[in-house]
Structure formats: C-alpha cells, structure tokens
Amino acid sequence: MQVHEAGQQAGQDAQQAGFAAIDWSTPWFAQFAGRGRRWQQAALTSYADLLAEMNADAVEMRQTTGRGQRLAFIAQDDLPAGAAYEAHIAATGCVPTRHNLHDFFNGSMWFAFPRIKAALNARQSAAIDMLGVGPTRGGVRDTLTLFDENALLFACADPRLSAALRGFDWRTLMVTRRAAWGASCEVRCFGHALLEKLIVPFKACTGHAWIVDVPATYFGWDNEARDAWLDEAVSTALLGTDALKSGMFAPLPVLGVPGWWLENESPAFYDDASVFRAGRRGRETQAR
C-alpha cells in the first residue's frame, strides 16, 4: 500500500511540475495564453478545479462536438468501460480528461480551433460506426489521429513557399525567403501531443504541417480573425476530403520556424541534415 501511495504521489508531483513548466511567452503557447494561464492555475490547484474551469468556459462558449452535442469535460474514470473515446465524445459531448499536460492541451484546442476539433471528432466517430474498434485504426483514422496529435497549420499565401516546404528546400524556406515569414506564411500549433513535447523544446521536434492556402489579405488581420479563418477552412477541408492520408502532411521541424528559436538566426542552424532532411527527391539528387 505504501509503495502504491508513493507511486501515486510521485505521479502527482510530476504532473504539477509539468503544469508549472508551461512558458506562455513561447510562440507555440502564446496563441492561447489568455485562457491557458487560468487553466494552468486551476490545474496547479487540483484536478477538480481544472475540470470546473474548463467546463465554465465550455458553457460560456456553447461549443458542440462532432454530432452537435454540447461540449463538456469529464474525469477519465467517468468514461464507461468498453466505450470508444471518440464515439463517446460524439454521442454525449463529454470529453474524458486526465489531470495531465496531454489532455490539458487537447482541451485547449477545443477552444482555439473548435470547428477543426468537431470535424476530427465527426470523422473519427463515423469511421468507428462503419468499421468498429479493431486492433488497428485504418488509414483514415490514423491520419485523423496524426492531425489531432501532431499537426501544425502552415498558412501560406505564396505557392513558392508551400512548394519549398513540400520539397524539403529548407534553405529557400527558412533562409533565402526568411523575410516572407509573417508576411506571406506563418505557423499555428495544433497537435496536443506536439505541444506537450514543446514543454521542453529540442531541435529534432517535428510537426506534421497541413498546408492551408490563405489570401494575401490574411496577413493584415489580427490573430483572432486569422484563427477563425483557419478554423473554418481546415474543418471544411477535413469534412470534404474522402481520401485522407498521411502523405497530405509535410514534416516541419518546429524550432526551425523563423523567430521561434534564437539559434535559428544563424543559417548554419539548418545545416543539420539529421533534422532538416533532404527528403526523397533530395536524396535521389545527392545519389546522382
């Protein structure tokens, strides 16, 4: 019993340390720092306080899940035995939530990009209805999960920059066209597992970029308007694309984003081929 209690206490201490370590000044967390700071203080107080804070915001926002059910957050132990996570959310509106960073950031995305989260839930629950819950998710559900866990939204008004990202042309994207960042392209973090990793940033931390073509006027809007536009555009794409597959993403090392990490001000930062890889075409060129 004492060993079990000691283990529980160690787990709680680790969770508290994780919540305390969130640095809201970093670009990947700053996008939802207003709500996040309140939730952080609640999480540091207790599990019950965190759920209460999340649910108060859900009531105020009147957000719904994939099948129009009103969003709410419940303790993980309240998920009925044998119930599929996404199917339960779609059917009841209740998101099972643990007292940890992973679920903290998952909940945050229901407010930062509510339409995208609802679209992901709608597609996941529809796939479960059709195929059931088997030993593997299948290609579509794997892609939806990858988006939910690890996506970056790469908003871009210049097709040449999108092509550079898809072509692993890091020198063009990050060095030669560096001034285009903030004027013709930018990144928003979405994946909650990716955000959890970024509590302790490391150079090889890589997200799966979902490229979103935006109008040039996008970069004259405030952040709230940009997020609302991305939320609508990406959710529409997710619901309207039948053949979802992992090849629709482009790998993007997060700390390479200009302005996001001090060390990347030096062009030599991008010479690390173990992080900024050449991609298949680049490897073929090198071989030739």
Rank of each mutant, 00 (worst) to 15 (best):
E5P: 00
E5Q: 12
G7Y: 11
G7N: 14
G7A: 12
Q12Y: 05
D13I: 07
G18E: 14
T26D: 02
A30L: 04
Q31W: 01
R35Y: 04
R35V: 06
G36H: 06
L44V: 03
D49E: 15
L50S: 03
A56I: 01
D57S: 11
E60K: 14
R62G: 13
G66E: 05
R67C: 06
I74D: 01
D77E: 15
L79C: 05
P80K: 07
G82A: 12
G82L: 10
G82K: 11
V95T: 06
F105L: 14
F105T: 11
F105E: 12
N106P: 03
S108Q: 15
I116C: 03
A118E: 02
A122C: 10
S125I: 10
A127H: 04
D129H: 07
G132M: 08
V133C: 01
V133G: 00
P135D: 14
P135K: 12
T136W: 05
G139M: 05
V140P: 00
R141Q: 15
T145D: 09
T145C: 05
F154C: 06
C156Y: 06
S162Y: 02
R166T: 02
G167Y: 03
D169C: 06
W170V: 01
L173E: 10
V175E: 13
A180Q: 14
A180V: 02
G182V: 05
A183S: 14
V200N: 09
K203P: 01
C205V: 12
V212P: 08
V212H: 11
D222Q: 13
D222T: 07
N223I: 09
A225C: 09
D227I: 15
A233M: 13
L244H: 11
A250G: 08
W261C: 13
P267I: 11
Y270W: 08
S274R: 00
R280H: 07
A287E: 12
R288Y: 07
